[in-house]
């Protein structure tokens, strides 16, 4: 009997999404999660098997025209191993063995890269490169050999990069501190279509640098279930720790703010706090004010040094 081809591929694993199934699902009905559009407060019920999928997202197209599913198979193998670890260890608050730790890091590494946001960012970058190359070829009057090569490369670039980058990202994640943040009774974590978030508080007031794994204060967060979220960092934040309701809601605000198109909750209720741009924290507000004052001062200083000598053009 021919094996079913996995053409419908999840970019957020189904086994992972099943954690957010509404516990109040009526008997006999397929279990569902609550999915919300980015920025919207009204959600709809969907079965985890039907969301966050794309056809042939990880399918390699060979030169012969055949389709190769080895990336999808590798990812589902990894998801299976992660699901076991989550069920047998993380959910029971037990320490992970070295092998399990590696699997968790590999799962996080895959989650960082496998989403449509990552693919779209890569495509945008490649498209710009191709456009520049084509423009140069045109202006120099040479044939479009190079740009064609790049177009060919772009077809499988996202798929290939997942496989190529997975070992090195896993290796970078391995020495980081691992913390499982356990929500106290009363609040739950939410997730999204791009649940793995890289955040560096040092870079939040600028747009030039993006967060990277080797930065001192970077943190990789990933909600693993409504009760537990993973946080990897270079700080001494490690172990299983109880997270207060406010801290959980603050993390949810980050997840909702970072989502690409959708976020997912285990019930239909949303919190106003999730949609706030800034956290409601006195010290953070002070930081924002300080930053604004610094920026104004910097602009004024620049104007005093250079700007005041330049006459404005009359319009």
């Amino acid at each position: 009997m021919a094996k079913n081809k996995p053409t419908k591929q999840h970019y957020v694993p189904e086994c992972y999404l099943r954690g957010w199934v509404d516990p109040k699902t009526p008997a006999g009905q397929e279990p569902y999660v609550w999915i919300f559009n980015r920025g919207e407060k009204v959600g709809r019920k969907k079965a985890p098997s039907n969301i966050f999928t794309e056809t042939d997202l990880y399918t390699l197209r060979l030169k012969t025209g055949e389709k190769d599913y080895s990336i999808e198979e590798t990812l589902s193998n990894l998801e299976g191993r992660y699901a076991n670890i989550f069920r047998n260890k993380i959910q029971k608050h037990l320490p992970l063995s070295e092998e399990e730790h590696i699997t968790l890091c590999a799962f996080v590494a895959a989650m960082l890269q496998r989403t449509p946001r990552y693919r779209d960012n890569m495509d945008r970058f490649h498209n710009e490169l191709i456009e520049h190359t084509e423009a140069m070829e045109k202006s120099h009057g040479i044939d479009s050999k190079e740009s064609e090569k790049m177009k060919e490369f772009q077809k499988n670039s996202h798929r290939m990069s997942i496989v190529q980058m997975l070992p090195s990202i896993t290796e970078m994640l391995m020495p980081m501190s691992v913390a499982f943040l356990c929500a106290k009774r009363g609040s739950k974590f939410v997730t999204s279509d791009d649940p793995c978030n890289l955040f560096n508080p040092d870079l939040q007031f600028q747009k030039f640098h993006s967060p990277g794994l080797s930065q001192k204060n970077v943190q990789v967060t990933l909600p693993l279930s409504p009760e537990i979220a993973l946080c990897m960092s270079w700080s001494p934040l490690r172990g299983y720790a109880e997270w207060s309701n406010n801290e959980v809601e603050e993390m949810n605000r980050m997840v909702v703010g970072h989502c690409y198109k959708y976020f997912v909750s285990h019930n239909s209720k949303v919190r106003r706090h999730w949609f706030r741009r800034y956290p409601l924290d006195f010290f953070f507000i002070l930081k924002i004010i300080r930053h604004l004052v610094e920026m104004r001062w910097y602009k004024l200083k620049n104007w005093y040094q250079y700007g005041r000598h330049v006459k404005r053009k009359r319009t």
């Binding site: 608050h93 037990l94 320490p95 992970l96 063995s97 070295e98 730790h101 501190s177 691992v178 913390a179 499982f180 356990c182 001494p236 934040l237 490690r238 172990g239 299983y240 720790a241 109880e242 997270w243 207060s244």
Partner: peptide, 15 residues
């Protein structure tokens, strides 16, 4: 190793 506020257990066997 146990500094995290609200710490309840080790995350890895190595720790």
């Amino acid at each position: 190793l146990t500094l995290t506020p609200g710490w309840i257990g080790f995350a890895t066997e190595a720790d």
